[in-house]
């Protein structure tokens, strides 16, 4: 399995566009930080009440919601190594969650991904009410925000690359 956390650092070397290869090399530090932050949100050392498999399934769900199949394909092999239960694996495919905590988590994930303008205090209160800690809530917010960021960087890089090919 290619390391999913070397995706952005590898873009320059893999680029077919000379101008884009140079631009990505100029932004090498940023590309490294894109990978490091991805690792920090999907596979943190301290994962609290949000296990790695759940985080990875959520990342795939967000990549797909953004229409970024490339990013979903990068995280799918990682999920396969994390012994996800069928319920957690189904989250990657957009399934609902039956239990109250899972429903609160997915409501936050989907709202903040699809229509962040509609997010409200009620979403945070629902997460805390479902037993997540303050750290879990911030960690979930960073996961959702970071993967939405990665999807846009990857989609944007592909567009710029094509235009400047």
């Amino acid at each position: 399995m290619p390391n999913p956390f070397s995706t952005f650092s590898s873009l320059s070397a893999q680029s077919r566009s000379g101008e884009m290869k140079a631009a990505l090399a100029d932004r090498a530090k940023i590309m490294q930080l894109c990978d490091a932050s991805g690792q920090a949100v999907v596979m943190p050392a301290a994962c609290g009440n949000l296990p790695h498999a759940l985080r990875c399934a959520i990342a795939i769900r967000i990549a797909r919601a953004n229409g970024c199949a490339e990013l979903a394909t990068i995280y799918a092999p990682l999920l396969a190594t994390l012994d996800a239960t069928p319920d957690v694996a189904a989250i990657a495919d957009g399934a609902a969650d039956a239990d109250a905590r899972g429903a609160a988590i997915l409501s936050y994930v989907d709202t903040v991904t699809l229509t962040p303008a509609r997010a409200s205090r009620a979403h945070i209160d629902a997460l805390l009410g479902a037993g997540l800690t303050d750290s879990d809530v911030v960690s979930l917010a960073e996961l959702v925000a970071c993967i939405n960021f990665q999807a846009r960087v990857l989609a944007g890089v592909r567009l710029v690359e094509e235009t400047f090919a």
Binding site: E19, A23, R27, I30, R152, V153, G156, V160, F164
Partner: peptide
């Protein structure tokens, strides 16, 4: 291309 990449970022 660098400026367009910066815009994306």
């Amino acid at each position: 291309a660098l400026q367009a990449l910066d815009l994306v970022l």
